[in-house]
């Protein structure tokens, strides 16, 4: 994006994240106000929400980088061993997203298909996403994870755990 003489790169992911947070905060503020306008209800929530929205306005410009400045900033972050070094490589991002999706599927299917099947399928999927291609390894390790966790947690917790086969 060009503004005047300068070229700007927009960090859309960051912009989307903070806009989501700001929308969430704004909705929460409206929800709290719709319940009651009493001081006992809004004493903390309202000022903190307004503060969070102010911070959002302060952070938005950080999503726009001058192209030259961005390039110059790269080497310093590479030298910092504790800089957040999440891979931005497309294949890596796809792997992380796939693992996130499979975690979500497992979580929502626990009560539907049973903890045992959901855990087995998730373990196999997660191994495959992380690069395992040998069918026997996929089968036996996923089975081991399922058996150990199901029987282990069943011995530990008092709640009923819905399972289909075990």
């Amino acid at each position: 994006m060009r503004i005047g003489r300068h070229s700007y790169a927009i960090d859309y992911g960051h912009l989307a994240l903070i806009t989501f947070i700001a929308a969430l905060v704004f909705w929460y503020l409206l929800d709290a106000r719709s319940v009651s306008l009493s001081v006992n209800n809004l004493l903390l929530v309202q000022p903190v929400a307004i503060f969070a929205l102010a911070m959002y306005l302060f952070i938005v410009p950080q999503c726009f980088h001058k192209v030259e400045a961005r390039e110059a900033a790269k080497p310093s972050s590479e030298n910092d061993p504790f800089a957040v070094s999440l891979s931005t490589d497309r294949a890596d991002v796809m792997r992380m997203a796939a693992l996130g999706v499979s975690l979500g599927l497992m979580v929502f299917l626990l009560d539907v298909i049973g903890f045992d099947i959901a855990i087995f399928l998730f373990a196999a999927a997660a191994m495959a996403i992380c690069g395992e291609r040998r069918p026997l390894h996929l089968l036996f390790f996923s089975l081991a994870v399922t058996l150990v966790t199901i029987y282990g947690f069943r011995a530990l917790i008092s709640y009923p755990m819905h399972t289909t086969l075990l």
């Binding site: 998730f122 373990a123 997660a126 191994m127 992380c130 395992e132 390790f141 996923s142 994870v145 966790t149």
Partner: peptide, 11 residues
């Protein structure tokens, strides 16, 4: 290897 650690810990 992460392929063994990740599924086990996440479960």
């Amino acid at each position: 290897r992460t392929r063994y650690v990740l599924p086990a810990i996440l479960v």
